[in-house]
Design a protein around this nucleic acid. Structure first.
Length: 429
DNA sequence: TCTGGGGTCCTAGGACCC
DNA sequence: TCTGGGGTCCTAGGACCC
């Protein structure tokens, strides 16, 4: 029996989230900006029609937005994350085999569903999500994940329908021939260019080639994409919890910074965030990378990176900050204007693996009580922050004042309608 | 003035081993 | 004169995804 995969994709997700709580935005051109109001990361159909490009730097299109009355929103990840959870919860109520692929997409493998009534069933899912959460979605169905992605592209961009099932809504050949090479999942700008140069213009062209030749000339990854286009399953549903292998936290500053103490303060915050994620997934780290960059669009681009090996595995924010700061000291050059700093935790392992402790390190050594006390402190820290507010408890080195010069800009951020008591909408009679 | 923040996997090449 | 072959591990860099 052939397998069937579906991808559920939220339409213009961030814009749709904003529209739910501000219905005046409906039918208006809306864009959502990245952190620091840097560039465009989501557009309503009306904004797309006006020619706003994905990733466009905001400062370049600001005047245009004003002239065209485009509504500009700063990103509000707290809101989007919560709305995403609601959508995913409904999907999980419909199907047991769900892969939460990204904030606005989920794959499902359709097992035992009555395929004849598939369209009806999926339309019911679309309507349920619209009714209970308010987010419009599109669904694509195919024999592999890559074909499901082709189908959802057809649904959204060509058919303007909520559901597209390959071999039902349209033929397989029709779908592949009208999917441009750069729209195929797994083919980025570089490969699209190289393939176009060879006269491979759409998904159908690619599917006719020899996977072996593609593997030699490009890579295994592209050869698998080709096989998936032919209907051979290479990519399976990943629906088990797998801890991250790397954890990163970094952000651009609101304004460029040249003061060491200010940058160290920002870095301490990113370390705290990364350590929190590390503990949340039950891991320990032994290797840090601290990086610092000046503006990459300016002439003197300086982007050093310090690698730090910790004496032993840890998940303690205090240890991580201490070593990260030592790394920052090594790469910091006075007199430059920096734009961004951050930390990457690598070499992660599960905290459940029994570890050999360092015999000569008296700080952590074999003093079990002290280790336990440290872990208890961290647990309390995480619990309080989770329960009351993010960063209600923090280390002194994370903040010198209430607001710091490195903090990011966010001029048009909407309220946290669903996660903060003060922000809940009041209905008046 | 102003250009995001996370991740993954694969490959090639070097070091090292027997 | 002729100077092996096979394997592993690690790392950096490059491709991709949202």
């Amino acid at each position: 029996m052939t397998r069937l995969f579906a991808i559920i994709d939220c339409n213009n997700f961030y814009v749709s989230c904003e529209r739910i709580f501000d219905p005046q935005l409906k039918h208006k051109p809306v864009v959502v900006l990245s952190n620091n109001d840097g560039c465009v990361i989501a557009r309503s159909n009306e904004a797309k029609a006006l020619g706003i490009e994905m990733g466009a730097p905001y400062f370049k299109i600001q005047a245009f937005c004003q002239r065209q009355n485009i509504v500009v929103k700063s990103s509000n990840y707290t809101l989007y994350g919560d709305m995403s959870n609601r959508v995913m919860h409904i999907i999980q109520g419909f199907e047991p085999n769900v892969e939460l692929y990204s904030i606005d997409e989920a794959f499902i493998e359709l097992l035992g569903t009555n395929h004849i009534n598939l369209k009806k069933y999926l339309m019911h899912l679309v309507k349920t999500i619209k009714q209970y959460v308010g987010i419009p979605i599109a669904i694509g169905v195919g024999e592999t994940k890559t074909l499901a992605k082709v189908a959802v592209f057809q649904a959204k961009k060509r058919l303007q329908q909520a559901v597209c099932i390959l071999n039902q809504t349209m033929t397989y050949e029709q779908a592949l021939m009208t999917t441009p090479i750069e729209e195929i999942w797994g083919i980025g700008r570089r490969w699209a260019k190289a393939l176009t140069y060879r006269g491979i213009l759409n998904a159908f062209d690619l599917s006719r080639l020899s996977p072996e030749v593609i593997r030699r000339q490009f890579s295994m990854v592209l050869a698998n994409t080709l096989r998936e286009l032919r209907g051979y399953v290479c990519l399976h549903l990943e629906n088990k919890f797998t801890p991250k292998k790397n954890i990163m936290s970094s952000k651009s500053f609101g304004k460029t910074q040249s003061d060491y103490a200010t940058i160290a303060e920002a870095l301490s915050n990113y370390c705290a965030r990364a350590s929190e994620k590390l503990r949340a997934q039950g891991s320990l780290t032994q290797q840090l990378q601290v990086f610092l960059t000046t503006n990459r669009f300016k002439q003197t681009y300086y982007a050093p990176c310090a690698q730090i090996r910790l004496p032993q595995y840890t998940n303690d924010t205090r240890t991580i900050i201490r070593f990260a700061k030592a790394g920052l000291k090594k790469i910091f050059k006075p007199g430059l204007s920096y734009q961004k700093t951050g930390v990457l935790l690598c070499d992660l392992i599960s905290q459940d693996i029994p570890l050999q402790t360092d015999l000569f390190n008296f700080e952590n050594g074999c003093v079990k009580d002290r280790l336990d006390a440290k872990q208890r402190t961290l647990k309390v820290l995480d619990k309080i922050n989770q329960r009351y507010a993010k960063d209600i408890l923090f280390l002194a080195c994370q903040r010198m004042q209430h607001t710091s010069p490195w903090m990011m800009r966010s001029e048009n951020r909407s309220r946290c309608y669903t996660t903060r008591w003060e922000d809940i909408i009041e209905v008046k009679n």
